[in-house]
Simulated assay, not measured.
Amino acid sequence: MPDSHGPLLWWSPVERGVIEVDGFAPSRSLRRARQRFEIRVNTAFDQVIRACADPSRPGAWIDADIMAAYTRLHELGWVHSVEAWDGDELAGGLYGVAIGGLFAGESMFHHKTDGSKAAVAGLVELLSDKYAADRVLDIQWVTSHLATLGAVAIPRDDYLRRVDRALALPLPDAFS
Rank of each mutant, 00 (worst) to 15 (best):
D63E: 15
A33T: 11
V124M: 01
D63R: 13
A53V: 11
V97W: 01
D22H: 14
Q47L: 11
S116L: 01
P7T: 08
Y159C: 08
C52T: 10
P58K: 12
S27L: 06
D157Q: 12
A53Q: 04
S176Q: 15
D157E: 15
T148R: 14
A64Q: 15
M67H: 00
L160K: 11
D22L: 13
L102Q: 05
V48S: 05
F45W: 06
D3W: 10
R31T: 12
W85S: 03
A98D: 00
S29I: 07
G92C: 09
A53W: 02
R156Y: 04
H145W: 13
V21H: 04
V14F: 00
A168Q: 15
S56G: 06
G6Y: 04
S107R: 04
E106N: 09
H110R: 14
P55M: 09
L146W: 05
T113N: 10
D138T: 00
D157V: 06
A151C: 08
C52V: 11
A147C: 09
F37T: 11
I66G: 01
V136R: 01
A91Y: 02
A104E: 07
V14L: 13
P55D: 06
N42I: 11
A119R: 11
S27T: 15
P7E: 14
S12L: 13
F37S: 03
V82S: 09
R50C: 08
F103V: 12
V124W: 03
S81E: 04
S29G: 04
K112Y: 00
D158T: 15
P13G: 13
H5D: 10
T71F: 01
A68M: 06
E20D: 13
P172Y: 07
E15W: 00
D63M: 11
A53G: 04
R161A: 15
W78S: 14
I19Q: 02
I39N: 02
L126E: 00
V14M: 07
E106T: 10
A98R: 09
Q35M: 07
E20K: 10
L30C: 12
K130A: 12
D134G: 09
V142Y: 02
